[in-house]
Design a protein around this nucleic acid. Structure first.
Lengths: 128, 128
DNA sequence: CTGCATCCTTATGGATACTG
DNA sequence: CAGTATCCATAAGGATGCAG
């Protein structure tokens, strides 16, 4: 955290940074995309769809998205418990932008990868 | 980094994640936006425009963007040295998407902030 | 089934000082 | 001027176990 520069910092008043900081976490966008593809999905289903994620990290991701109001969490007080997640309207409104970003990524990925390789080869970037 | 799961992981084959991982760093998008607003800009100018960033982090950010081919670095072999940074075509092509993301953020920021506050207060999700 | 409690490793960012 | 070199603090992510 910054110390006592709570108003002048360009980054603090920058809304985009605030948003991207959340969406830039490792799994957030993927979770949103998965949620956008179905009405609702259970926690365990999501775990299966993303094999590499631990339940701890998944629940953290979902909780953050829920806190931001992008995701809804619905609990069915059954035994065993059943919890369904779905996108809110705000969450849905983000999907097209993610799609554009995905298209951009797909379109430019090859060039980017080539560039990275070339860049690293020239020794400009350190490798340890 | 992952260990030896270089093919099965959904996240590894996900191009979007790869991209967002870079753009999601603290200053990357801001740097791109600043670069998009001028033809070229010197390192020291950039430092002044982002008072909170250290030169180390700025140069790291720029180096990563350069490695990806989003930013060009042009060195003038003068004394003292002069280095100018500017966006490449690929870099420019990303700007509209960033703008959309910014608009989305501005539009939904209030709702998001309200939700966060409410969420933190209740400790859990809100009551309807 | 859901997901928190722990503990741990690593990546990111920052402060400061110092060169070509 | 344009960075690097260190050293350090913190946060993100992951592994495992257990509880409601």
């Amino acid at each position: 955290m910054q110390k006592n520069r709570n108003n002048n910092s360009i980054i603090e008043i920058c809304p985009i940074r605030n948003i991207v900081a959340r969406l830039g976490t490792k799994w957030a966008l993927l979770v949103i995309v998965i949620l956008s593809e179905q009405e609702a999905i259970r926690f365990s289903e999501m775990c299966k769809l993303i094999p590499d994620i631990s339940s701890k990290v998944l629940s953290e991701t979902l909780k953050t998205l829920e806190a931001d109001g992008l995701v809804t969490r619905k609990v069915y007080p059954t035994v065993p418990p059943k919890v369904e997640y779905s996108l809110t309207d705000i969450g849905h409104s983000l999907v097209p932008i993610i799609q554009e970003l995905t298209e951009w990524a797909l379109k430019n990925m090859e060039a980017i990868m080539n560039n990275r390789e070339k860049f690293e080869k020239t020794g400009k970037h350190e490798d340890k």
